[in-house]
Design a protein around this nucleic acid. Sequence first.
DNA 1: TTTATTTCTAAAACCGGTTTCATATACTAA
DNA 2: TTAGTATATGAAACCGGTTTTAGAAATAAA
Lengths: 330, 330
Amino acid sequence: MKTIRDVAKIAGVSPATVSRVLNNKGYVSEEKKNRIEKVIREVGFEPNQVARGLAKKTSKTIALLVSDITNPFFPELAKGAEHIAHSNGFSLLLENTKGVDQEGTDYIKLLKNKYIDGVIVATHDIDKYLLETNTGIPMVVLEMENGIENTCTIKVDNFHGAMLATQHLLDVGCKKIAHIYGPLYDQTAYERLQGYQQAIRMHDDLSEITVAGDFTIEGGQSAVSQILKDYPDVDGLFAGNDLMAVGVIKELSRLKIRVPEDIAVCGFDGIYLTRIFSPEITTIEQPIYEMGELAAEKLIERINNPYINQEIIELKTKLVVRESTSKSLM
Amino acid sequence: MKTIRDVAKIAGVSPATVSRVLNNKGYVSEEKKNRIEKVIREVGFEPNQVARGLAKKTSKTIALLVSDITNPFFPELAKGAEHIAHSNGFSLLLENTKGVDQEGTDYIKLLKNKYIDGVIVATHDIDKYLLETNTGIPMVVLEMENGIENTCTIKVDNFHGAMLATQHLLDVGCKKIAHIYGPLYDQTAYERLQGYQQAIRMHDDLSEITVAGDFTIEGGQSAVSQILKDYPDVDGLFAGNDLMAVGVIKELSRLKIRVPEDIAVCGFDGIYLTRIFSPEITTIEQPIYEMGELAAEKLIERINNPYINQEIIELKTKLVVRESTSKSLM
DNA sequence: TTTATTTCTAAAACCGGTTTCATATACTAA
DNA sequence: TTAGTATATGAAACCGGTTTTAGAAATAAA
């Protein structure tokens, strides 16, 4: 591997001049510039990122913190983020936070002493700590409370989406609609619950039926029996996320209850699974891949300019009607 | 942030001595060692990985090259690899190779100039190039031809697994079994095809029915009509991977053909999806998470000792019987 | 013509670690 | 007692870039 000093020697200049050419910064005569670029090409010189990193306190690397990459929401997000990261010359570090390090101090250390340039936080396992002990590292946070000082928060209009879902169930003729909500420390779960309640309250003849879930397939499954015990006549179920919707449908199928003929089911998120499941699942779709891209874009923006103020971006969700709510499609 | 020179000054020693304590290497008196460790604790000193990396030509980072992280096989693999990486103090860089850089030269550059310590290759998009231009970086390869010089190859017994799958379909009463194979440049696809053929040939009254697929859901879907056109009386389908099995079942369901009553379906891989799909899908299960862990373990072994010879590890698959092949379970 | 100002370049210092080298002291073995 | 080895430590060089400093040459302004 050639170094900048090798290049300098061959081109008959000083390393400093080569560095100026490399970074396109400072005065360099056209003549030397051409000579240096020629040498760089000829010897196939590539600046060593680690050395460069040490000098510039940067690593051209961003970290993506997810709670669990096997949750199908995250691979799509990761792919979007990775796409933008790569096309801007950054690498993507993947970190699963679930169950590993409750405090997040390890992550902070990691970020600092590897000069990680920025972080996309898509987990609830560690945020407060990151926030408190703030590393000063640019951050983009997904679906977080009301935003964090000096960071970019990207979220979707959960409230509106949940209203859409509930209204859609009404539109397809449901008379008694229950909602399975996720853990309420998760802002998304809370907002979706609120949206459901708002939609129900708009109709005098309807009453709320809510039961707690945990955003997992198993959670969806067990919520079903709980609901059916108290309300055997429900005909619509709005699950707080797609994984629970899958669990719901599995459980209904086990109980020989037909979807959507007996009970219509709507999820939330728009993970790929909803498209391939049988029946295909109606859901409120978030632009997950695009969120990943946007998160990376906003993060890189902040890396290049650390003095951007707090920013909250709310993306639109949309209703995607599939078999699980529409008898005609079956 | 404190540096090693700060620590040295406070402890009244030279940076070299602090470095010796940090790396537990070379002679240091007990007395100074204690003093230095006390100072390190008190000032909360953490060695800067980038500086250390530059000096030692290492980054405590490994890269995972997958073709597409949204393919559900890979998140499980990634999680396993990340688990082991973390518990050994390594970070995991994620790279999607699909469609990005046909030659792989970018990856080689990246690996070299970021001092990436090792690579897990789980993609067919770039391997030969990596192999040729070999970077000298320790590698673990998943499911690759017959192993690559100086690397560790981890694979499963595809041949045997495919025989198991075929035999299982026979056992549940299938008389006419077709196989949808994946792209044959993929060694796994080839071996599975061979296993299927071997199992069929063991029975005089059976004949092979094979059709090409591409390891995607859509591939599975389109293969179905192709098979049914020529062989309307097939009663067993062995898909070369789970994604195709999902496609197959979706298509059969669309055609109102019952699974498993009319046609039994078996997949291969054991991705999580097979457990949650309806009907649940019988498959030949690979220990995906464990493969991720093993790959990381073997890689780190090679990072710590670069002179380990070529190694080929073959893991066992096992048949997991679920609804898609067993009427009694429905 | 003289003084500023801009352009250009190399030497040296720096980023924050590790490692080699040289030297000094304490122990062993001959 | 002397040579040889193990222990202990700091100064300096190094990893491979960037950046500051300082000075030279060219150009512009007074």
